[in-house]
Design a protein around this nucleic acid. Structure first.
Length: 278
DNA sequence: ATAAGGCCCTGACCGC
DNA sequence: TGCGGTCAGGGCCTTA
């Protein structure tokens, strides 16, 4: 599932390919994917625009056009952008195709149909509720201590809350908690300051290395698997310690990794290295 | 304000 | 082999 490192990889790898390219035609095969404006308006309005800016905010991709507008894409669970030579009819689960002026197509595929596109001159309205970037200057230990203070929700749930910090999903929340030796179910407000500081550092370390490894490719099927825009896999799954490793030995102590559900999400942790001190 | 649960989606997987 | 039930989960919504 695409989280911050995967989305960052998409942007980094698409930017040099798309920069300066003009969209000659847009096709939408499932209207629900266009969150704003309507799908018909989207198709008309984006034709002729040229890509010239590329950013990421949390798990959102921002494609700036050569006018005040920005194309925003969120892949949610199973969305994929792939750059390929123009082909014939749309593949299965293909919801958007942008024809480029170099003869290639930008394909959007999403089996679960959770991902969304926005075309807007005011991207801040889409991104308004997001917390700070976890690798940016506003995400400090003091900030995190303040945001968690008094909260009774499990720390895992708050790491997933994009209003607190933007870009962490289920994979990197579990890996962060493991690295910080914090049990996922502990009430966030009960964490000591040094534990929150460890979480802050662990989140930054995990995300930084995951970006260097171009994200995590895993999943039970090719459909769900995260694939980079040119078709290559990421590499960080080889460095996962706990995520989807239930029953396998903890890399540190050897105790079997356990699984529990928190905030309706699977959580994987080592009960020895991440003691439950609730 | 916070916490918890439901919803959207569909392919994979499991048990019979 | 076929079939029904369950699971996966990001963001948004409703409820308490």
């Amino acid at each position: 599932m695409p989280e911050l490192p995967e989305v960052e990889t998409f942007i980094r790898e698409l930017a040099p390919e798309l920069n300066g390219r003009r969209i000659t035609r847009a096709r939408v095969f499932w209207p629900g994917v266009i969150a704003f404006p309507t799908d018909e308006e989207f198709v008309t309005a984006i034709a002729g625009a040229r890509f010239d800016r590329f950013e990421r905010r949390g798990k959102y991709m921002l494609f700036g056009l050569d006018d005040p507008r920005t194309l925003i894409v969120h892949l949610r669970m199973t969305g994929k952008l792939q750059l390929a030579p123009a082909a014939g009819p749309p593949a299965k689960h293909e919801h958007v195709i942008l024809d480029l002026d170099d003869g290639r197509n930008l394909h959007y595929q999403d089996p679960r149909k959770f991902g969304r596109f926005w075309l807007t001159p005011t991207p801040e309205t889409v991104l308004a509720k997001l917390g700070p970037e976890p690798l940016g200057p506003d995400f400090t230990p003091a900030y995190l201590i303040d945001k968690l203070a008094g909260r009774k929700a499990p720390i895992k749930a708050l790491l997933l809350d994009q209003r607190i910090v933007a870009g962490i999903g289920n994979i990197y929340a579990d890996e962060t908690l493991y690295r910080a030796h914090v049990h996922p179910a502990r009430p966030a407000g009960n964490l000591r300051a040094d534990e929150v500081a460890r979480l802050h550092a662990a989140a930054q370390d995990v995300l930084q290395v995951a970006i260097e490894r171009c994200g995590s490719s895993l999943g039970r099927s090719n459909l769900q698997n995260y694939i980079r825009p040119g078709g290559e896999q990421g590499g960080f799954q080889e460095e996962h310690n706990v995520f989807r490793k239930t029953g396998q030995p903890c890399p540190h102590c050897g105790h079997p990794i356990e699984r529990m559900v928190i905030a309706q999400r699977s959580s994987h942790y080592c009960p020895v290295c991440q003691p439950d001190t609730r």
